[in-house]
Design a protein around this nucleic acid. Structure first.
Lengths: 134, 134
DNA sequence: CTGCATGCAAATCTTTTGCATAAGA
DNA sequence: TCTTATGCAAAAGATTTGCATGCAG
C-alpha cells in the first residue's frame, strides 16, 4: 500500500516556507536555519532539514545541487533554469524562453525514459564580473 | 605571479586515471578508492580525493554533482550531457547533438557572463524501467 | 488519547587537512 | 637534495537519526 502521510500544522514549517517562498536567491539549510532562528530561537537544525526534505519531496520547493558540497533550496517548485557562478557559487534564476524540446533531442538513442531536465548555466555572475573589472 | 604546478609521476594517480578513463559509469571517490585498492592495497582515501580534485582542476576529468550528496567523476572531460535516474541515481552519458545555442538564449536578460552549461536530464534509466515492467 | 513534529545530541557520511615519511626528478 | 605525493589519522562540514517530550487533531 502507498505510504499515507498526514501532515499536522507546524509553526516552524510555516516559518521555513514563508522565509523561502519570496526569496530570489537559493539559501542552504544552514542559512535558512539561521534566518528562521530569529523568529524561533529554539528551532533546531534537524527540524529545518526534516522540513526542507519533506517540502522538497512534496514538490513544494526544490533542492539544488550546485557543486559546493551543500544543497541549496529554491522556493519556486516550477521547472526553470539556474545560473551558478563559478567563482562565488551564488545561484541565480534565469528567465528564458521554454526549451523543453531538448528532452526530445536527448531521447534519441536513449533507452530510458526522460521526464525532464535541469540546466545549470555557469560563468561569472554580475557581481563577480564587476569586481573583476576593477 | 601565477601558481606553478609541477607534477611528479605517481603510480597511484595513474591507477586512478586508468580506472576512470575507460568507464562509462560515473563512480564516486569512494567507489574509485575501493577499486584502486585492489592494485594498491595501501592507498588512502585522502590520496584518491587529492588526485581526483587535481585531475578535475586540470580538466582531465569532470566532477559531477547529481544530487545524491556525493560527487561523481567522469573520465570524459569534454562537455556532454548526463542523464540521472531518479530512482537509482545512476549517471549515464547522453549522446546527442550539440545544443550550445541555448547559452545564447540564456544570456538574454542576464547581466553576468555565461560560458557554458551542464544539463542533467532525469527520468527512469533503462534498468529501473525494466524492473518496473515486471 | 494517538500520532505527527520538535529539540537536542549523538551518529553518519563525505571530503579536507596536518604531518611525518616515501618517492620522483 | 629538493619538491611533490603518500598514508594515516584527525578534523571539518553537511545531513540524518534516536529518543524523550510537546503540540495538533
Amino acid at each position: 500500500m502507498a505510504t499515507t502521510r498526514t501532515l499536522n500544522k507546524s509553526r516552524q514549517r510555516d516559518a521555513i516556507l514563508n522565509y523561502l517562498l519570496p526569496r530570489k536567491d537559493h539559501p542552504t539549510a544552514d542559512a535558512i536555519y539561521n534566518a528562521v532562528k530569529e523568529e524561533f530561537p529554539n528551532i533546531s537544525l534537524g527540524t529545518v532539514y526534516r522540513n526542507l526534505s519533506l517540502l522538497a519531496e512534496l514538490g513544494v520547493i526544490q533542492k539544488i545541487s550546485c557543486g559546493d558540497n551543500s544543497e541549496h533550496f529554491d522556493g519556486n517548485p516550477k521547472p526553470h533554469n539556474h545560473f551558478i557562478c563559478s567563482e562565488c557559487y551564488s545561484v541565480i534564476d534565469l528567465e528564458m524562453e521554454n526549451i523543453d524540446f531538448i528532452d526530445t533531442l536527448a531521447a534519441t538513442n536513449f533507452n530510458g525514459k526522460i521526464s525532464g531536465h535541469n540546466i545549470y548555466f555557469y560563468g561569472k555572475c554580475p557581481n563577480c564580473l564587476k569586481k573583476e573589472t576593477n
